[in-house]
Every structure is written in structure tokens, then in C-alpha cells.
Amino acid sequence: MSETAAAHPQFVLAAVLGLLFALGTFLVLRRDIVRVVWGITIISQATNAYLVTMGGFAGSVPIISGHGGHGSTTDPLVQALVLTAIVIGFGTTAFALVLTYRVYEEHGTIDMNELGEST
């Protein structure tokens, strides 16, 4: 790892999260429904990563933080909420993909422009 990345990890994290949000936005703006679903999934996972990092990484376990002189701990509430968001996001993505498959069976296409013209 370069000296700059080691000294300023928040800039590397900001760049990676920015790229994930950009990729998700790019996919959401496509005509293919499957790509839109994956774009929404990528955006939600980037949001989860952002929330975890804003919760803080202190490097100590909350249960034993009083031992050894570490004063700061990681907030477990943020991690629990993000874990719940990951599970709900997985279920929502699976449901959206099943709905996309049903649309394909009914209309023979998953192109949103063609679906708009067929109604």
C-alpha cells in the first residue's frame, strides 16, 4: 500500500464508495430491468458500507474495551442495523428478480422501452 493511502484511508474509502455509487447510478439508468435491479442493489450495499464506516472502526471489541486502555469502541447498533439492511436487501433483490422473470414470461422482453410501448 502506498504511503498516501496508509496515511489517509478516508480518501481511499471515499473514492471506492463514490465509484460504487456511480456504478449503481449507471446501471439504474439502463433500459434492461435486470441491470436496474443490480444497480439498486449496488447502491444499497454502498450505503451499507458507508453507514458501517460512519459508525466507526475503533479496533477494539466493545465487551472488553475497558481492559487494556482502549477508550473508544465501535458502535454495535450501527452494525446490527446494517446487518438487518443486508438481509432485507437480499430478500428484496430476490423478489425483484422473480418479478423480472415473470415480466419476461408474460411479455417476452425485459427492455423497459418495449414494455412501455406494449401497454
Rank of each mutant, 00 (worst) to 15 (best):
S44H: 12
V52P: 00
L81P: 00
V87A: 12
T74E: 09
F95M: 14
Y101F: 15
F26T: 03
V82F: 04
G89A: 03
G91H: 02
I86T: 10
D75H: 05
I110A: 11
T25S: 08
Y104L: 13
S44A: 15
Y50C: 08
P9Q: 00
E3K: 04
D75T: 08
L83C: 14
F11I: 11
L27V: 03
T4D: 05
Q45G: 08
T119Q: 15
M1N: 06
R35C: 09
V82D: 01
L81Q: 04
L83N: 12
I40F: 11
I86D: 02
G89I: 00
G108W: 10
A80W: 13
V28E: 07
D111T: 00
V16C: 02
S44W: 10
T119M: 15
F90M: 09
G71Q: 14
T53E: 10
V37T: 08
F57M: 09
H107F: 15
L77I: 14
R35T: 06
A5I: 07
D32K: 09
V37M: 07
A7E: 04
M112A: 12
T53W: 06
A6L: 09
N113S: 10
L97V: 09
G39D: 03
E117D: 12
G24W: 01
F26Q: 04
G18Q: 02
V16Y: 01
V12C: 03
V12P: 00
T93Q: 10
Q10V: 09
I88C: 05
A6K: 06
L97Q: 09
V28L: 13
V78F: 05
V78E: 02
G18C: 02
Y101E: 15
I110G: 07
H8I: 10
F11A: 11
T84C: 15
T47W: 12
I110M: 12
T53F: 06
V52D: 01
L83K: 09
G66I: 01
L13A: 10
M54L: 15
A6Q: 07
P9Y: 00
Y50A: 12
A15R: 01
A85M: 14
I64Q: 09
A22V: 12
S2M: 02
Q45R: 11
V12N: 00
M54D: 12
F11H: 13
I110K: 14
V34H: 12
S72A: 14
P9I: 04
A85H: 08
R31N: 10
T109C: 07
I88R: 02
M112G: 09
I88M: 08
E105K: 11
E114H: 08
L13Y: 13
S44D: 11
I43H: 01
V82T: 05
T92M: 11
V36E: 12
T41G: 14
A5N: 08
G68I: 05
A96M: 13
A46K: 01
H70A: 15
T100S: 13
L115T: 03
I40L: 14
I63R: 06
T93S: 11
G56H: 00
N113C: 06
